[in-house]
Write a protein that binds this DNA or RNA. Structure first.
Length: 430
RNA sequence: GGGGAGAUUCCAGAGCGGUCAAAUGGGGCAGACUGUAAAUCUGUUGGCGCAGCCUUCGGAGGUUCGAAUCCUCCUCUCCCCA
C-alpha cells in the first residue's frame, strides 16, 4: 500500500516535503508524531495524528510516538496567542503513562515486528542537556533570522500581538528540532508528521539534520480538522471530547460523531476510520440517496467508537441512543427493567435522594435544584418549565409548582429528568 | 518621565442623576420545524419565597431624597510623546 496515496485520498495531507513519497517507496521508514502530555487522556483532536501513525504502520513502516515531556514543559507558541502555563514533572509523568495506555489500542507496540511502534519521551534526552551544550550544539546551527521567519514566531512578534513571547517559547522550535535530530541519529527516523501548524517546527528539525548531520529528513502535515460551521473541531459545550471513558462516556462519544453534519461526516469518515475507499464511496452514495437516515454519521460513530472503546460500549451507546431518541415514549421507558435502564443511562449524571422525601411529594423546583444540584438556579428551571424544556420520564412538565412523588418512579427507584432533547439526568430514590 | 483614553451584566458595546437588572448585536439555553441536522422563526439569558423583593455596572469612600451615571483616592488596561 502506498502510504502517501492513502493519506492523500483521505484528505489527510496538507503539505508534504518533496521526496517523501519516494523515500517511503524505497525503504522501511521510521516516522514520528509528537503529542503534548497536557492532560492524562488524549482527546479526539489528537486522533488525527494517531490515525496518521496507524496508517503508517499498516503501510509497513515503523511509527514512533514522541511524548513531549520536555516540550510540554515549554509550550508551543504555534496557534497560541498567549504564554502557556507550565506543567511540573510529576504531572507530566502521570499524563505520559496514561496516554501510553490509550495509544496501545491503536497501534501494535508489542509484536516485536520491525514495524512495531515505539514510544519515547523527549524529557529523557532533554533533561540532562545542559544549557551550554544546547546553545553550542544546537543553537549554533540555526540563525535567529531563520527562526524569526516562522509564522508561529512572526505572529507573536507582530503588532497585533499584545502578549509578546518569552524566550522560552521562542526556543520551542529548537527543542522540537532537537527531538527530530535525536530520533534521526538514534533511531534512523527520517520523517516527522503532525498538524499543519507544526510545519514550521518540523522544518527547523529537517534543517538541523541537514546542517548538523548532512542528512535528509522529511515532513508531512495534515490539514487542521475543521467543522463546516466554523466552530472548533472536537469541542462540545462541555469541553473536549476525550478518549478516556471516565471523562467522556462512550455514549457521549458515540453521540458526538453521530451529530456531525453531512458535510463533515464525509471528511471525517475518511480520516477517522480505516474503511476503504470503495466502502466509503458506496456509503457516501447511499447517504446522498436518503440523507435523513444519516448512514454516514451512524457508520462513522460506529467505527470510531469501536476503535476507541469496545464493541460492548458501542452496543450500549447504540441501544441508549435508540431508547433516548427513537420512538421511545413514556410507556416503553417505564417497561425497561432495571439492568437495561442502568446500562442505557450509563454515564448520565445520577443523584440519589432519600425515598422518604419523595413519598409525600416534593416540589419539582426543589427536587431538581436543592436536592440534586442538577440545576443551580430555580429561575432557570422556571424558565425552562415555562418554555416546555423540562420532562420527567418523558412527560413534559409545564407547571413549576407541581409536585413529584414516589408513584412516578420507574422500577420504584428512578426518575428520568430531561432538559431539552439531549440532556438527561437521573434521580435515584432509596 | 510627560500627555491622552478607558474599566458596564458570557463577549462586544450603548447608557440624559431618578421610569436601568441596564439599549443593541453576538454567543448560550429552550420551543416550533426537522434527520438527535443545517437554515429559519419564537421565547429567554443576575438571584429569590417571582405581578413583589434582593444583589450587580473595576475597588474604597463621598455628594444627593435618589447615582452605572457627579466628586475624591486607589488598582488595572490601552494609546501617543520622550
Amino acid at each position: 500500500m502506498n502510504f502517501v496515496k492513502e493519506l492523500s485520498w483521505r484528505g489527510m495531507i496538507h503539505t508534504i516535503m518533496p521526496g517523501t513519497e519516494e523515500l517511503l517507496q524505497k525503504e522501511l521508514t521510521t516516522a514520528y508524531v509528537g503529542i503534548d502530555p497536557t492532560a492524562d487522556s488524549l482527546h479526539i483532536g489528537h486522533l488525527v495524528s494517531v490515525m496518521m501513525l496507524k496508517h503508517f504502520q499498516v503501510a509497513g513502516h515503523k511509527p514512533i510516538v514522541l511524548v513531549g515531556g520536555a516540550t510540554g514543559m515549554i509550550g508551543d507558541p504555534s496557534g497560541k496567542s498567549k504564554e502557556r502555563d507550565l506543567l511540573d514533572e510529576e504531572t507530566l509523568r502521570h499524563n505520559q503513562s496514561c496516554i501510553q495506555k490509550q495509544l496501545a489500542k491503536f497501534m501494535d507496540f508489542e509484536s516485536g515486528l520491525h514495524t512495531a511502534a515505539e514510544m519515547v519521551n523527549n524529557y529523557d534526552w532533554m533533561k540532562d542537556f545542559s544549557f551550554i551544550d544546547f546553545i553550542r550544539d544546537i543553537g549554533k546551527h540555526i540563525t535567529v533570522n531563520y527562526m524569526m521567519a516562522k509564522d508561529s514566531v512572526k505572529k507573536r512578534l507582530g503588532d497585533e500581538s499584545t502578549e509578546g513571547m518569552s524566550f522560552t517559547e521562542f526556543t520551542y522550535q529548537l527543542v522540537q528540532g532537537t527531538d527530530f535530530l535525536t530520533l534521526y541519529k538514534t533511531k534512523g527516523c527520517k520523517l516527522q508528521m503532525g498538524g499543519s501548524d507544526q510545519w514550521g517546527n518540523i522544518t527547523t528539525g529537517t534543517e538541523l539534520i541537514r546542517r548538523k548531520e548532512q542528512g535528509e529528513a522529511f515532513a508531512i502535515t495534515c490539514p487542521l480538522i475543521t467543522k463546516s460551521d466554523g466552530v472548533k473541531f472536537g469541542k462540545t459545550e462541555e469541553g473536549n471530547v476525550w478518549l478516556d471513558p471516565e471523562r467522556t462516556s462512550p455514549y457521549k462519544f458515540y453521540q458526538f460523531w453521530l451529530n456531525v453534519s453531512d458535510e463533515d461526516a464525509e471528511r471525517y469518515i475518511k480520516i477517522f476510520t480505516l474503511l476503504t475507499k470503495n466502502e466509503i464511496d458506496m456509503l457516501i452514495e447511499e447517504h446522498s440517496q436518503a440523507k435523513h437516515d444519516r448512514l454516514l454519521q451512524k457508520r462513522l460513530a460506529r467505527e470510531v467508537t469501536i476503535m476507541v472503546h469496545t464493541e460492548e460500549a458501542l452496543a450500549m451507546a447504540e441501544e441508549a441512543s435508540q431508547i433516548l431518541f427513537g420512538k421511545g415514549t413514556a410507556d416503553t421507558l417505564s417497561k425497561l427493567d432495571e439492568a437495561t435502564f442502568l446500562s442505557v443511562f450509563e454515564g448520565v449524571p445520577l443523584k440519589t435522594v432519600p425515598k422518604s422525601e419523595l413519598d409525600n411529594g416534593i416540589g419539582i423546583l426543589e427536587l431538581l435544584s436543592d436536592k440534586t444540584g442538577f440545576f443551580e438556579s430555580k429561575s432557570e428551571l422556571r424558565r425552562l418549565i415555562k418554555g416546555n424544556g423540562i420532562s420527567i420520564n418523558k412527560n413534559k412538565q409545564n407547571n413549576a409548582e407541581t409536585n413529584v412523588d414516589s408513584t412516578q418512579l420507574i422500577n420504584g427507584k428512578y426518575l428520568l429528568v430531561q432538559k431539552g432533547k439531549k440532556d438527561y439526568y437521573i434521580i435515584k430514590a432509596e
